[in-house]
Design a protein around this nucleic acid. Structure first.
Lengths: 207, 207
DNA sequence: TTATTTTCTGAACACTGTTTATTTAGTGAA
DNA sequence: TTCACTAAATAAACAGTGTTCAGAAAATAA
């Protein structure tokens, strides 16, 4: 059944084509200011064609959301092999911040923008997020076993550390730092990360 | 000129009326899903009337933005009188988080939502934000003089600590914690705050 | 009562996401 | 090649959006 195969392939190609166009437009101008007609124009199809491949505009966002999570997951993979838990934790958080600042619109869409909770929950692809979170918490558990971070609830610690890097990233991305120049912002974020690292090391109980 | 005075007063009342209606609608359903026609309906005026009192929809948002900053500033005022800098710092951060969770849509609009940077900069009312930030940095300076927080750049430290509480708040407000129940989230946020407080106290150099 | 200014509104404009009926193109059989 | 059938693409329409503007209504001044 070569024809059915080709049709399947073409269907996937069309999806990828729409996704690619949407991605570029969204990254350049932001989700809400890009209309379906603009996406349709850029791939030279009519707006209604898009509805044959995606349920609605949010569905496109959701597909990109998944791609972005895969990309982040890919970046973090190498960190998982670091043996020392506190080194791994620090690398994990640094990589997270780097990803956020290197892919601002992606990050925006993953962790800042309003995405109907139902949508994220429904589809099982939120797995990537969950897995990433659990990797963080496991690392924290191992840090605690090594004497770091006292014995606060690992979930609370994971939430706290995640919040720290998310806060840095999202204040930058959403332009809430008019008191600093653009150069300063990233420099200060790095300094803040260093401060966090020092505090993590300082958290070690001395027996 | 009593008539001119009354007209002036009525103009302000009308502005307040629109603002109040918009505030309630925004807080309930979010900025972008509330239309001007809905606001107009709720105050029983035509949509075009609103344009006599506000430049555009964003201008309403901006006015609310300022009201919200005043409210936060008001909450923080009492903390400024705490003598011990580390206590003051902790109170400052806790109050910030409480404000965020008590006024989620307000907080959203102040620190998460896209607000054209130009708009925030232009108007001098960003003073409130700047002043709040400087109060934080000054407190951090005093903490450093008292031996806490080593001697990292105060701006980096302020940015870092602010990011921590902003991260907690915004991950909750933007529903990025499907791995926790609603109850758990706020409990974990409080635990994370306690962890931060412990780390702050731990940061004291031992001479 | 009239003239003038201020306040308000209905209708329109250009846009949005989305749906539906219709047209076009591609496929399999006679 | 011709026919019937299926799948893909579209034009047109719908209900909604923020915003503008000419003209109606109301309030003030003469």
């Amino acid at each position: 059944m070569g024809i059915a195969d080709r049709k399947e392939r073409e269907k996937l190609e069309m999806r990828a084509k729409i996704l690619d166009a949407a991605k570029h437009l969204f990254l350049e101008e932001g989700y809400s200011s890009v209309s379906l007609r603009r996406i349709a124009d850029s791939i030279e199809y009519s707006p209604s064609t898009i509805y044959l491949y995606f349920k609605d505009k949010d569905d496109i966002l959701f597909a990109l959301h998944n791609l972005a999570f895969q990309e982040l997951y890919h970046r973090q993979r190498q960190n998982l092999q670091i043996a020392d838990p506190i080194d791994r934790l620090q690398a994990y958080l640094s990589t997270y911040l780097e990803f956020a600042l290197d892919n601002r619109e992606y990050y925006d869409l993953m962790f800042i923008q309003y995405a109907p909770a139902s949508k994220i929950k429904e589809k099982a692809e939120w797995r990537y997020g969950r897995r990433a979170y659990e990797a963080l918490r496991d690392t924290i558990r191992q840090c605690q076993e090594a004497g770091y971070l006292k014995s606060v609830d690992p979930d609370a610690t994971a939430f706290g550390l995640w919040s720290f890097v998310h806060g840095l990233a999202s204040l930058i991305i959403r332009h809430r730092l008019p008191m600093f120049s653009a150069n300063q912002r990233e420099k200060l974020a790095k300094q803040a990360m260093e401060m966090l690292n020092e505090m993590l090391e300082l958290s070690r109980v001395q027996h």
